[in-house]
């Protein structure tokens, strides 16, 4: 082929440009640590990375939901423990009151104490968390869902359950409603105990011992259920954390540049570029005029 000056310079420029392009790509990869920093770098890997990022953001949200739910559940446990302690106290009063040797006066005093306990129970159960009433179902702005009118306790909340989304398609119920507590029969038993003590009915008080035990067991089982929810959330949280670490590493594998490799490649490209520059300068300096006198 007949080679002209324009062919030479065109080929030299093309080669220099190819080297420059490679170097620019590698420089970018080294500078932002990413091999895929925009869709056109690799659309398939980019789409994969986008999905990973979406999943990560969702998992972060699930973690936040779990943290929020855990606060509720822990608070439930706290209040239920206080409440249970009151029931245990009430039962020991019942044991005292069922003793036939106790006097009527003593039973009257005990009855008053049970009455105080009922009031205390109601106050305990009417507690709030983050400004929300905890046992009123979803009627969280009802600050006194339990009312004690001096004779009976009535529940004015609803049976709504509050859900926390802890994983895709997975909800947990984080509240215990007043109806759940009512259905343990604890209020009826306490009121019956108060009344039996008031009328000095030691046999009646003795009959109530089993009822109080049952109610206490049921309250404990509510607490246990609450604990199960907590366990469930902790397990899910641990699984989410593991998944997040895994997805992070998948994401990194998908879009991050291997710095060692990039730097090695960059050195190679730099050498090629220098060689091309040297050849270019030599080739362009060659001139027939220098050889003619």
């Amino acid at each position: 082929m007949r080679i002209t000056q324009s062919i030479m310079s065109r080929n030299l420029m093309t080669n220099l440009n190819i080297n420059r392009e490679t170097m620019t790509e590698l420089q970018n990869a080294a500078a932002n640590g990413k091999e895929v920093s925009k869709s056109s770098d690799d659309p398939v890997r980019f789409a994969k990375a986008s999905r990973f990022r979406k999943t990560l953001s969702q998992y972060d949200q699930y973690s936040r939901n779990i943290n929020d739910g855990s606060g509720w559940v822990d608070n439930n446990a706290l209040v239920m423990n206080e409440f249970h302690a009151l029931i245990v106290d009430a039962r020991s009063i019942a044991i005292q009151g069922s003793d036939a040797s106790q006097s009527e006066e003593t039973r009257q005093v005990l009855s008053d104490r049970v009455d105080d306990m009922i009031e205390e129970s109601v106050a305990t159960l009417n507690s709030t968390y983050l400004g929300k009433s905890i046992f009123s179902g979803t009627d969280t702005q009802n600050m006194e869902p339990f009312e004690y009118d001096g004779s009976n306790i009535t529940y004015t909340g609803n049976e709504g359950k509050m859900n926390r989304r802890i994983s895709e398609g997975l909800d947990v119920e984080i509240n215990i409603t007043g109806s759940d507590i009512e259905s343990t029969g604890v209020f009826t038993s306490l009121v019956a105990l108060r009344d039996a003590l008031a009328v000095n009915d030691d046999a009646g008080v003795a009959d109530l011992l089993q009822d109080l035990q049952d109610a206490s067991d049921k309250v404990l089982s509510l607490d246990a259920q609450n604990g199960l929810v907590k366990g469930h959330m902790q397990m899910t949280s641990a699984r989410l954390e593991t998944s997040k670490v895994n997805i992070q590493s998948f994401l990194s594998e998908t879009e991050d540049a291997d710095l060692a490799e990039v730097i090695m490649e960059y050195n190679g490209a730099e050498m090629a570029y220098e060689a091309a520059l040297q050849v270019t300068s030599k080739a362009l300096q060659l001139n027939i005029m220098d050889f003619l006198r």
């Binding site: 869709s39 056109s40 770098d41 690799d42 659309p43 980019f46 789409a47 986008s50 999905r51 979406k54």
Partner: peptide, 16 residues
């Protein structure tokens, strides 16, 4: 999100 990602992927492959 997948619908949107497919737009971005399509633009990316067009550039490529």
């Amino acid at each position: 999100s997948d619908y949107y990602n497919s737009i971005i992927s399509e633009v990316g492959s067009k550039v490529q």
